[in-house]
Design a binder for these strands. Sequence first.
DNA 1: TCGGATAGGCGCCCA
DNA 2: TGGGCGCTTATCCGA
Lengths: 240, 240
Amino acid sequence: MNLEVVEQALQANKTLVAFVSCTVSYSGRAETFLEEGDRLIIIKADNTVIIHQPEGNNPVNYMKPGSSVSVEQTDEGVIIHVLHEKEKAWLDITISKIHNMMSEKLVDGQKMELAGNEKDMSDYIRDNPTVIAADFTPYSREEHTDVGFIDVFGKDKNGAVVIECKRVTASLSAVDQLRRYVERVAAIKGTANITGIVAAPAITPNAAKMLASYNLTFVSVEPPKRLERWKKHQKSLGEF
Amino acid sequence: MNLEVVEQALQANKTLVAFVSCTVSYSGRAETFLEEGDRLIIIKADNTVIIHQPEGNNPVNYMKPGSSVSVEQTDEGVIIHVLHEKEKAWLDITISKIHNMMSEKLVDGQKMELAGNEKDMSDYIRDNPTVIAADFTPYSREEHTDVGFIDVFGKDKNGAVVIECKRVTASLSAVDQLRRYVERVAAIKGTANITGIVAAPAITPNAAKMLASYNLTFVSVEPPKRLERWKKHQKSLGEF
DNA sequence: TCGGATAGGCGCCCA
DNA sequence: TGGGCGCTTATCCGA
């Protein structure tokens, strides 16, 4: 271990990664402790600190950007102190052994482009209203009320239509949301004659049952672009 | 770059990290693309793949455990292909330059201990029922119904009591949940006389209004142990 | 900053 | 395996 290496890397706005044996203590929104073991530590230039165990997708501990990082040499080993004043949180990494480490100044101004989220889906419904019903006319997206905002709001021949979109299988909470909006619109319009629709690729059985009990309906809508590139990819694999 | 180094690391159940310049393509539940820039790539022994940009808490792209990883040398550079058959997802990392890399076999059988989550809070309510009401008697936690499970279920002098816990400020969705459970219990018991309580440190104004409109109530409960170690830490800092 | 909702959410538990 | 839901959720967006 070399304190100077760590401190120089941090000073130079580098990203530092280290394989270490360590224990981890965290206190903030909750409190955690992790016994000794081998982990990967990442310290970014913005003082984000991330600790990964050897398996799994998620970090076991982390501190968000804007922390302050300091390093201390003690009898127990090297301790990395991370403090986030604003969040009243701190993290201590007590390192008994550094197996390997490296640091690098990384330059990256790019932002990830993403397609296929729920906004794309409500856009798709607005632009292709017949996927809901032949006589459906959308008015607005993200209509705000004091009980939340309605994904797609419009009308059909019977009156107002409230649509809650989900890009994945709709669950009980989707029915909750829809019911909340429909009741609000009914209260505003002074009529119980509102059509409420969950638009999603599928719905769970319990949610479907609950939906029906409130005279709300489900319309199956696939999120746009889903799996297109996957299928293309599979096809190209098949050509080998 | 050295394909063999990467492949040997993966074969040997090592965790591999690399600073690279790359582009990233993903297709699965959505589709993403990330233009050329410097990133940190992590490939774990379980074939978890994580890509971090130089700043921020969260990975920009990832593939969950259980993927298959292969490496290919092309004219454009080295491509790391990650495929998750089951999830019908794939990720390609096209690397123009490797700045630095290292790998290590990590051994870690530990599991993080956590205090201060919602389970601790409902335990606390069960063990200290007077924080809800003087005459409250808890029966069970995680009582299952077909519309979800009730955090804490019990009785008071008026009848059944349903409690929904939140460790942070309760929102509209917490009221939704509680209402859903209360209605279900009322239907089962055949009575409308059910007491429904949101137990949380705070509640948003709109949620409070909605709660009141359904004759449900809010009880302020702090999640246990919150900030205790923070305060101790601050005190010890103050002693310097 | 707060409130509300989505997320390529993830991960855990339980039927 | 799917449903339901919490999460040190994070992140985005609008008021």
